[in-house]
Amino acid sequence: MAELIQILVSGLAAGSIYALAAVGFTLLWQASQTINFAQGEFVMLPAFFVLIGMTVLGLPMWTSILLALVLSLLILGVAFKRLIVEPMLPHGTLPLVIATIALGLLLKESVKEFYGATAQPFPAIFPQTVYNVAGASVSVQDICNLVVSMLAIGGLQLFLNRTRTGRCMQASAQNPAVAEILGVNVKRMVLYTFLINAALATIASVLISPIYLAKFSNGETLGLVAFIAAIVGGFNQIRGALVGGLLIGVIDNLSAVYISAQYRSAMPLLLLIAIILLRPQGLLGTPEGRTV
């Protein structure tokens, strides 16, 4: 029982970080039909911005995190949208998929070449004390990670549902043509989506790097997990991505302990295939009409 609690807590903590990446992924898909294969690298990169701020520029940690946020907003938000997504949108999804694959490779190799190929230790933001709760050891870091990501996603949900800008963003995602007619600046709303995605990636990066260390290849697994979480939860719902992320985190940890460490990464994939077979719109998703 104690072991189970321990697994659940660390699973939820990891899962909430996956959810951050998955939510960004679904937002991009809704706003611009971009399947971002570089999402994992988007989460990998901000950690290195923080490291550059701290080691190269000698800034304190929080200033470096702020710097990383600004850089991510500019590069992963504005530049990604203006230079890559916008000119390619009229050509359909496929060239864009290829471009994001190439972008992921570009980011990964650049970090490897210009910063280093080895895993870099990353400063912990939260105390790493471990408390004993009913026989289970629960780390403060895990709880804090869970709380921070939940607050971020909750805040985003409130912003999208309760503010005028948020509702305009939803309208542009659901039906850009009608939104445009009603006077919504659709292009600006799409840009906001890209900025939110960059911000979520930065939060995820800062939370996950103290655990996994900052490494150029972190994006490979993270991207796949975000991708699976988004589909399992439901590609067209933020709640879905949240549930998907948490579920994958828990399943991942459970199967590592109770099933087989070798096939640990197979469980989320099997879940993905089962979901596609049985409930293609995802656990919380609503079916989209076929185009043909």
Partner: peptide, 17 residues
């Protein structure tokens, strides 16, 4: 080379899908 290569692919996709 991988950096140059992936940058070339992005440019190609933007100009000629």
């Amino acid at each position: 080379y991988l950096i140059i290569y992936s940058a070339l692919v992005i440019v190609l996709m933007v100009y000629s899908p």
